[in-house]
Design a protein around this nucleic acid. Structure first.
Lengths: 216, 216, 216, 216
DNA sequence: GATGAATGAGACTTCATTCAT
DNA sequence: GATGAATGAAGTCTCATTCAT
């Protein structure tokens, strides 16, 4: 519960009580980090884009890395927010009659998130490999949490006879790959293509469900 | 054909005529780039790890970026090598009776590649977003080439009545997501877990095939 | 007389009319300057230790150097206070029958001073070499004043036949070295050793007097 | 013996194998540190005075503090060199018939040293209070070594009936204060005065010896 | 071919000081 | 009177690259 509160704290406290200049710094950093990467971005560049003195950055963020974390931590928190929050009233765990209904709801929800937070999300996945503490935090607070939740879900639908009797991990991996594959191609690699989201999502879900439906 | 020859040139010429020191430099760079990222790596660090003088690096590679490219370009080439080479004798296009046989062969082949070239592959996907020419090259020489090939393949098996009648792109995306999803989780995210590759690959293919088999 | 009044002014006005915060700032500065040196101390550090805002320091002291002077100037004044004050009623010049009685009184008096003002004294001697105006002030108001007084004294006791007929400067230097030598070792270098002040002072005076007593 | 070798190593290795530029850097640093103090000196100032690029300083000295140490450590070593070296052939411990002969030899020797190394010596005593490791090294390698040697000497001359029966520490302190007092005033505080060294030293020794000669 | 000293631009960060609140 | 956000100059240090040896 404490860990979840950590994340919730971050969620609720971020983006509040921020000076005007602080917001401008965050925004500028977000944009340039996403474009050039953390290491290749200089604080003077950020300052210029934010329209503040370079010293101002360091009044609010002790180090450049601090600035990175203040972008990445809330993003991690938001990334798993729906999973945590729903945990609170466990009933909703199984709100959906069918696995595919759950899938669709989740895709739509996370797609909305990605649309709004693409830059921060890119920074997150770009930088995680190079910062062991971030990696650790991600594993501990994000991945494991989401994985655990999916395990419950998949087993719930297995019991209902909706899902094939393959190892839960394999089912999750398969589902997640298909969903993330779609989302990343859609929003990260080819965002400017002309997408019919409704249809694409439907097809994706259909193939996934075919893939894991109980075979006769 | 010229482009393919470009790639083939790279393939055949790389790792030849390299002095002992040059090899040590490449190896050191490969390791540190993968660990810390290109921008966060200093040439002096590379020199130290390679056991050469700082100046020696610049005798062989005009700039630090050049060094990166001399790692990344051959990796791109090798990445698509099987697709290019097989193009040469077009007959083999359809060497495999069933789509799943093709899938299995491809997974095994690319898995072998990844095992041997993990570090270079990581560098490639980490740095592509930050270097427009690399991105361009990747799209032009790698992605489009592979995509084109897959298009032929999927349509070939569609004609044989093995694959569902959904848009080819969707089928490719779905297949690729599932395959890459497995490979990345297996080799990038959880390489030290205890994997039964044989079984995992079989399950992955089974779900993919279920997902796209012609429904009755 | 004016110069002396300057010093007296400083003496009497210091530590008065100081707000609570001002006192805390002085105290904090005193402590950190003594520990790390003037240049290596930052105003923000002082502010933090004093528990005031950074700006508050500059409300009371125009510059950081001003803050230093407001510590050092009173210390200089107190350092020579006994010499100046006694000047006022010249009779006391020769209050003591014997040179050694004078020496003993002086040692005890200045030792008491040092005990109470060690930090400020350290700052004074550490910073004097780097601030020409301070050096000037010290020479003019402190050193020359004390030297002049000692000259009178030594010559007085010479006339009484108590002191050897060597150049007065040499006698003063010798006396002062022995006395300061003791005081500095006692309070600056080895303050935590277990000292029998009574006995040490007696021995010091005995050796000094042997050194300069009229030889038979 | 090891510690002495440490110091000897420093002695013998310093000032050798130094680049032309490195020498200029050391010289410039020496001068400015002595004039303004370590903390108040900027590396850019040193670079300018030395006529090198600022980066060049950091090729030879990892940090600014390193540069300080490379000045201070050899100075400490040279400061006690005569005491260490003489230790090697212990016979010479008592080369001099009378304590005053020893004193005179020592004063002349150390005066020559001070004349040549005034700047470095000033830096040493100015910075020691602010750098715990330097303080530690000074206590361990310099002070204790010299003190130990003086103890032997004073007791040797006590046994010969030349020195008064007061605690050895007090005798040493008294002697050292008088000698250092003279040397510091002569070379540090009033170097430009017109000194008759021969005579001043003679007087100093005379007073010291009077002070500690066996009383009849 | 190899070295490593030298460079100077620029990186991150600190700092004394100002000023609107 | 007090605050602390803001500043920009300056500080220390790193870096890719060059070049004489």
């Amino acid at each position: 519960m404490t860990e979840q509160n950590d994340m919730l704290d971050i969620l609720l406290n971020s983006e509040e009580k921020l000076t005007e200049k602080q917001k401008r710094i965050l925004e500028a950093a977000l944009e340039i980090f996403a474009e050039k990467g953390f290491s290749a971005t200089s604080t003077s560049e950020i300052a210029k884009k934010a329209g503040v003195a370079e010293g101002t950055i360091f009044r609010h963020y002790k180090t450049k890395k601090d600035l990175l974390l203040s972008i990445v931590a809330p993003t991690m928190a938001k990334l798993i927010a729906p999973f945590i929050i729903r945990d609170i009233n466990k009933v909703l765990n199984t709100k959906y009659e069918r696995y595919e209904d759950f899938l669709k709801a989740m895709i739509l929800n996370r797609q909305a998130f990605l649309k709004e937070n693409m830059a921060a999300f890119r920074i997150l996945i770009q930088e995680i490999p190079f910062h062991p503490e971030m990696k650790e935090q991600f594993k501990e607070h994000v991945a494991s949490k989401v994985y655990e939740r999916f395990t419950h879900l998949v087993e719930f639908y297995k019991d209902k006879g909706q899902i094939i009797d393959l190892p839960t991990e394999a089912v999750i991996r398969f589902t997640a790959s298909s969903v993330f594959g779609f989302l990343l191609i859609r929003h990260l690699f080819l965002p400017e293509a002309d997408w019919d989201d409704e249809k694409e999502i439907e097809m994706t879900i259909r193939m996934v469900m075919n893939g894991i439906r109980v075979e006769e």
